[in-house]
């Protein structure tokens, strides 16, 4: 299996991860009025997981093809 196909599959996996994170029912778990470090939980969860997803995609795409 060559690298670009593996990269594509990893991206697809990240897509599925994103679908899971950004939708019911995971979303509902955090849909409560509580806070982490003064940030509303839902807000923190969405932005946190969004950022994590972007970091993962960046790591995946910017790896040197060596």
């Amino acid at each position: 299996m060559n690298r670009s196909s593996l990269t594509a599959q990893r991206l697809a996996a990240l897509f599925l991860l994103g679908c899971a994170l950004f939708d019911y029912p995971l979303l509902a778990l955090f849909n409560r009025s509580s806070e982490v470090f003064g940030i509303p939980l839902l807000y923190a969860f969405l932005f946190g997981s969004w950022f994590a997803l972007i970091v993962l995609m960046a790591l995946l795409m910017e790896r040197r093809e060596d």
Binding site: A8, L11, A12, F15, C19, W50
Partner: peptide, 8 residues
């Protein structure tokens, strides 16, 4: 964001 993950 999700669509770009499928961008490849």
């Amino acid at each position: 964001t999700l669509m770009l993950a499928l961008g490849w």
